[in-house]
Write a protein that binds this DNA or RNA. Structure first.
Lengths: 242, 242
DNA sequence: CGAATTCTTGAGCGCCCTCAAACCATGTGG
DNA sequence: CCACATGGTTTGAGGGCGCTCAAGAATTCG
């Protein structure tokens, strides 16, 4: 019994059942998923575009990012994955990746074989649908990010990101209303926001000056939640939390 | 036997089986899906954000767009749906919409009840997985669009869009290598690309001057495919066509 | 043929980028 | 404990891409 795997699976089940009604037996089945535990360092790529994978990643502790790159080499991070997230659950139905998965901080990862997921999903359609639903939530966040990057300016989109991450960390007990750790450099944050590191720096300063939030040493201090959500035009419905 | 419904379902099944191996019986089951046929006019919204739906839309003839809006009212179209597409198949597992669905041209739509989808998906896990896979492809396109809007300039992203739509129309026999109909105004195209209508106009002119493609009266003329894909940095792997 | 859209073009501006350099943390080895 | 290397942050100067506002031309449709 690996404690890292157990903790990660517990968080995973927590999120699944918050959106899908599952019985005690069904939860237990998911908690019993097998997987190899490993640690990756910032900059390590767990999955590369074009690769065919036969197992999914479950985030234990740390932060992963899904990314794509243009020919010229500029990088867009299209999703962030925190503990309990399964960034490529969809690879079970689509094993050939069209994007990459990279570690943004030192991260513990549980690798769960597709075969084990298949056993649960095929034997019990409700579990299959719960997994499908989880993938759908991920897609909903991507759509919101597209709006964020396509139509909001730097300050709004940065505020929006800080709001989303706050609520997601709150769900797993890592945000208490005032501060949370977001282990991203400003350069990585720029890759998330479709900006440059220089402009992220200036935008964060502006948010600090306005008294909304304050980033220091990978920690986000939320000084005025209402102001932050207002600047970011943040409406959490797309996250489908209760 | 409604011919519109039949044609739309035939296209739908074509796409599904191009990515999921299904038996003759399974195809037949999908072709038998029930649904009400209707016509919507440009500007009509089929689904609004926040709404709970109990049926999905299948595009017959025309063009639908998935969109979100900011507080200030600027609109981002995050997906285009052509004949045979089911824009909100995912609503079967997530009935509360977090985005809208709008008609971009006069469009015939088949409304398929979730209940009918449930019968297929629950009785036959392979069909359920095929549907899940289709949703995953949709998500893959959204991720590519995020890269497109986050990291490519106006000319590249416009070219990229024209390439993607060309291949998707080719799949359904509506692009022969030289031209296809794309029933979008430049204003709607701007909502897709995260630009303004004015700049879309200038960008299209630039693509025409360079001899890559030429848009006239809702028709796209591809004059140099290699050049167009090169400008757009287009690599169709994310579409998962053979 | 007339009315409503859509397309096209111009002028000016601002957000964000590029390039560059300094400043600051952290960690390592002598 | 300091010297040094490394990576991240901060700041400045200048420029360009795409936006805003506005008006006229072309096209579609009733």
């Amino acid at each position: 019994m690996d404690p890292i795997r157990q903790r990660a699976l517990a968080l995973f089940v927590d999120r699944i059942v918050s959106r899908s009604a599952l019985s005690e037996a069904q939860r237990h089945a998911i908690l019993g998923l097998p997987g190899d535990v490993g640690t990756v360092e910032p900059g390590d790529n767990l999955v590369r575009a074009g690769e065919v994978v036969d197992r999914t990643c479950l985030v234990g502790d740390g932060l992963l990012g899904r990314f794509s790159e243009t020919r010229e080499g500029s990088r867009q991070i299209s999703a962030l994955y925190i503990p309990g997230d399964m960034p490529d659950l969809h690879s079970y139905v689509m094993p050939r990746a069209t994007w990459g998965l990279t570690a943004l901080a030192r991260t513990t990862v549980v690798r769960v074989p597709h075969a084990a997921i298949a056993v649960l999903a095929r034997r019990d359609p409700a579990i299959g649908e719960a997994f499908w639903r989880d993938c759908t939530m991920d897609a909903a966040m991507t759509v919101e990010w597209l709006l964020n990057i396509g139509r909001r300016n730097a300050e709004m989109r940065t505020a929006h990101l800080l709001c989303e991450m706050a609520l997601r960390y709150e769900r797993i007990g890592r945000f208490d209303g005032t501060r949370y750790d977001l282990p991203l450099t400003q350069h990585q944050m720029a890759d998330v926001l479709g900006l440059t590191n220089v402009h992220v720096n200036r935008t964060l300063r502006r948010l600090k000056e306005r008294g909304a939030a304050h980033a220091a040493y990978r920690t986000i201090h939320v000084t005025d939640w209402d102001l932050l959500t207002s600047i970011g035009d943040f409406h959490p419905a797309y996250l489908h939390f209760r």
